[in-house]
C-alpha cells in the first residue's frame, strides 16, 4: 500500500512533463516522415535511397537529441522537487528501506522513459517500413539505439547531479557527465555504431545504480 502511494507520488510529479514530452517527440517522429515523404516525392524514391545508401544521408537525424532531452526533462521533473527544502529526507523517514525507495523512484523513471522511447522506436520502425527496405531500416536502428541509450544515461546522470547535496560535487559530476554522454552521440556514418552498442548498453545499466551514491550521501546529511 505504501509502495503504491509512493508510485502515485512519482506519477503526480512527472505526469504532465512526461505526456507533453511524449507528445512533442511523437510530433518530431511524424515530422521526420512528412519530410521523408516530401523528399521522395520531389527527388524520386530511387534517388532518395541512393542518398541514404551511398552518400550517408541520415533521414532520422532530427531524432538525435530528442531522447537526451527526454531523460533530462524526466529527471528534473522527478528529482528537482525533492531537493526543494530537502524533501527527499521525508521519503527516507518512511518505513521502507532507503535504498529501496530510491531504487523504486529510479525504476519508475526508467519504466516511464522506456515506455515513451519504445513508442517512439516502434513508430519509427513501423512507419519506415512503408518507404524503406530492411537494409536502410536496420542501419537507422543501429544509429538511433545509442541515442535512446543516451536518454537513459542522461536521466541517471541528471538524477545523480540533482540529488547531490554538495555543490562542488555537483559540478564535478557535471564534468564527468559532459565527458561521458557524448560517447553516445558521436557522429558516425549510418550503421557505424554497431560494434559499440552492447558496451554502451552495459554501461547504461551500470549508470543506473550511480544514483544510490547521491541518495546515500543525502541521508548521511552531507551538505
Amino acid at each position: 500500500m505504501l509502495i503504491r502511494s509512493m508510485i502515485f507520488k512519482e506519477w503526480v510529479k512527472v505526469r504532465w512533463f512526461l505526456l507533453l514530452y511524449t507528445l512533442l517527440a511523437v510530433l518530431a517522429v511524424a515530422y521526420i516522415f512528412i519530410r521523408v515523404r516530401h523528399d521522395i516525392t520531389f527527388h524520386e524514391a530511387n534517388n532518395y535511397w541512393y542518398f541514404i545508401l551511398f552518400q550517408g544521408h541520415s533521414w532520422f537525424r532530427l531524432l538525435r537529441y530528442i531522447p537526451l532531452a527526454g531523460g533530462l526533462v524526466l529527471a528534473v521533473a522527478q528529482y528537482f522537487p525533492e531537493t526543494v527544502n530537502k524533501r527527499i529526507k521525508l521519503t527516507f523517514h518512511l518505513p521502507v528501506e532507503e535504498n529501496r525507495s530510491l531504487l523504486m523512484m529510479m525504476q519508475f523513471g526508467t519504466l516511464c522513459l522506456l515506455a515513451c522511447f519504445l513508442l517512439l522506436f516502434l513508430l519509427l520502425c513501423g512507419l519506415s517500413r512503408v518507404w524503406f527496405p530492411t537494409e536502410i531500416i536496420f542501419s537507422a536502428v543501429v544509429s538511433v539505439t545509442p541515442w535512446f541509450l543516451a536518454g537513459f544515461a542522461a536521466y541517471y546522470l541528471a538524477a545523480l547531479i540533482i540529488l547531490e547535496p554538495v555543490w562542488l560535487r555537483r559540478i564535478l559530476y557535471l564534468l564527468v557527465a559532459a565527458a561521458f554522454v557524448p560517447l553516445y552521440l558521436t557522429g558516425s556514418v549510418p550503421g557505424g555504431y554497431g560494434p559499440a552498442i552492447l558496451a554502451l548498453f552495459l554501461l547504461t545499466c551500470l549508470l543506473s545504480v550511480a544514483l544510490l551514491f547521491s541518495g546515500y550521501r543525502f541521508r548521511k546529511g552531507e551538505m
Binding site: 560517447l183 558521436t186 558516425s188 557505424g192 555504431y193 554497431g194 560494434p195 559499440a196 558496451a199
Partner: peptide, 12 residues
C-alpha cells in the same frame, strides 16, 4: 576512444 581514423565503425 570510440572513433578511429582507420574505420568508420565505432567501438571502444
Amino acid at each position: 576512444k570510440l572513433e578511429s581514423p582507420n574505420s568508420n565503425f565505432l567501438k571502444f
